[in-house]
Amino acid sequence: MAIKLILSDIDGTILDDNNKIDTGLRLAIANLKKQSVPFVLASARSPQGMLNIAKELDVLDNPIACYNGALVVKDLQSNNYSTILSHQLEKAEIEKMLTIIQQNFPKVAINLYSGSDWYVEKIDKWVKIEADITKLTPIVTDLQTLVAKNNLPVHKILLISEPEEIAQVHQRLRDSNLANSSFYLSKPNYLEITNAQVSKEKALRELAKTYNLELSETMSLGDNFNDVPMLKLAGLGVAMDNAPTEVKKSANVVTGTNNQNGVSKAIEKYVL
């Protein structure tokens, strides 16, 4: 069937190893618009962390799936963007995680994300690195007090430290009966935590419903293990050539690497 919706990962997919956008993608998206095919970005990033990329690609009119699908928004350019889908972590589990980390792993940087806001307890080397990557500035506050006293929707927690310590944290949290939270290593030293119901696969299902499309009419592109469910679900799952072997096996086809304009080449070949 003809592809009528595209859902694409960002890092390692439309961005090359120097964080530059696929040079053929803006033209490809302009041509997609002529055929009324939405190009939707999906990432573990926050809304503000995706804003400049969405602006550069001129896709701000389309939905954007943030925090791996925990928050799907539209009209991101507006301070009052509209929410299509929102899954937040449970308050009791957040408080339990914060206690475990603060008491047992004090060197771990805790980053808490709510909508467009990024909260931290202190500015350490890890927070500085993340700020340099995202070009965003966190709000420094007491996280336990913030969660306890506010009805704050927490869409993601990001824990950063040395890989060995993050591996220990990962195992400790998995053993702590946090049934409604899921844990994912996006890097050896980055542990991402979202509601267990969150995935790019669920975001793709919701977007297909929003556009009144069959899943067979969708295409997804990605390069990492958290992309596998949406690669399998879409009518056409496209893995980047820089993806691990198991990720490639989950896709229907493999395109060029993120350094070879693999996304725009796949759009030209399979959609346009």
Score class of each variant (00 low, 15 high):
63 P>E: 10
252 N>D: 15
249 K>Y: 05
21 I>W: 00
1 M>P: 12
20 K>P: 00
201 E>P: 00
225 F>N: 14
110 I>H: 00
38 P>R: 03
29 I>D: 08
255 T>Y: 05
132 D>G: 08
43 S>W: 06
9 D>V: 03
259 N>F: 12
150 N>Q: 11
25 L>N: 12
87 H>E: 08
175 D>H: 03
188 P>D: 01
52 N>V: 05
44 A>L: 04
2 A>N: 14
54 A>E: 12
238 V>F: 07
114 S>R: 04
254 V>C: 12
223 D>M: 02
178 L>R: 12
19 N>S: 15
228 V>R: 03
75 D>C: 05
64 I>S: 04
92 A>C: 04
128 K>I: 07
173 L>T: 05
126 W>G: 00
250 S>F: 12
199 S>L: 08
122 K>V: 07
231 L>Q: 12
202 K>P: 03
91 K>N: 12
13 T>G: 06
148 A>P: 00
206 E>G: 07
39 F>P: 06
31 N>K: 15
248 K>M: 11
256 G>N: 08
83 T>M: 11
39 F>D: 04
61 D>F: 01
249 K>T: 12
170 H>K: 07
20 K>V: 07
245 T>I: 11
271 V>E: 10
101 I>G: 02
159 L>E: 08
190 Y>G: 01
73 V>F: 00
198 V>D: 09
209 K>G: 04
219 M>A: 05
172 R>T: 11
3 I>H: 00
179 A>D: 13
72 V>M: 09
53 I>L: 15
175 D>M: 05
257 T>M: 06
55 K>R: 14
257 T>L: 06
84 I>L: 15
75 D>W: 02
107 K>L: 10
159 L>M: 10
37 V>W: 03
56 E>L: 14
258 N>M: 01
270 Y>L: 14
216 S>T: 14
191 L>D: 05
255 T>D: 12
80 N>I: 09
255 T>Q: 02
91 K>T: 12
229 P>Q: 02
187 K>H: 03
68 N>V: 07
270 Y>H: 15
104 N>D: 15
99 T>S: 14
140 V>Q: 07
151 N>L: 06
68 N>G: 03
77 Q>G: 08
259 N>Q: 11
264 S>K: 02
68 N>M: 10
260 Q>R: 02
55 K>Y: 13
270 Y>N: 13
95 E>T: 13
33 K>Y: 01
48 Q>L: 14
154 V>D: 00
237 G>L: 14
168 Q>D: 06
148 A>V: 06
128 K>L: 09
265 K>D: 11
148 A>G: 03
64 I>H: 02
76 L>A: 13
140 V>D: 00
168 Q>M: 08
205 R>H: 11
35 Q>I: 06
74 K>T: 13
4 K>P: 05
